[in-house]
Design a protein around this nucleic acid. Structure first.
Length: 107
DNA sequence: GTGTTGACCACAG
DNA sequence: GCTGTGGCCAACA
């Protein structure tokens, strides 16, 4: 049977997001817009956030490595406070609720 | 099938 | 620097 229903809970679009997210090494971050661009949807940044929020239960998805385009923390299902804490563990320091994209953004 | 919502982005005032 | 508006995309009622 080679049928593979995989996870009907997760859409293909969301799975694509996780795939790109996993490419990001520790100590580096990316933005929703840039992530969307890699998926072929330079304007689908909002959909990225939606996908993450609807699947925040997955531990293999470092959602905390995703920030807003202006360097803002953006959001986090567990609360922005957790996100900042996790980033700190990756040697990424947050200042005034913002991150130095010039330093931490993954190219 | 339509309308609303949302962890966004860019631009104008 | 902040607020308001428009736009794009996906999921949900």
């Amino acid at each position: 049977m080679a049928s593979k229903k995989s996870k009907p809970h997760i859409s293909q679009f969301a799975q694509r997001v996780y795939r790109q997210l996993r490419r990001i090494p520790a100590g580096r971050v990316t933005t929703y817009g840039d992530l969307a661009k890699r998926l072929g949807k330079p304007r689908g940044a909002q959909a990225i956030g939606q996908a993450l929020k609807r699947n925040h239960s997955i531990p293999f998805i470092p959602c905390h490595r995703v920030v807003s385009a202006n360097g803002s923390i953006g959001g986090y299902a567990r609360g922005p406070m957790h996100k900042i804490r996790l980033l700190k563990q990756e040697n990424i320091y947050v200042e005034k609720g913002k991150i130095d994209l010039e330093k931490y953004k993954f190219h």
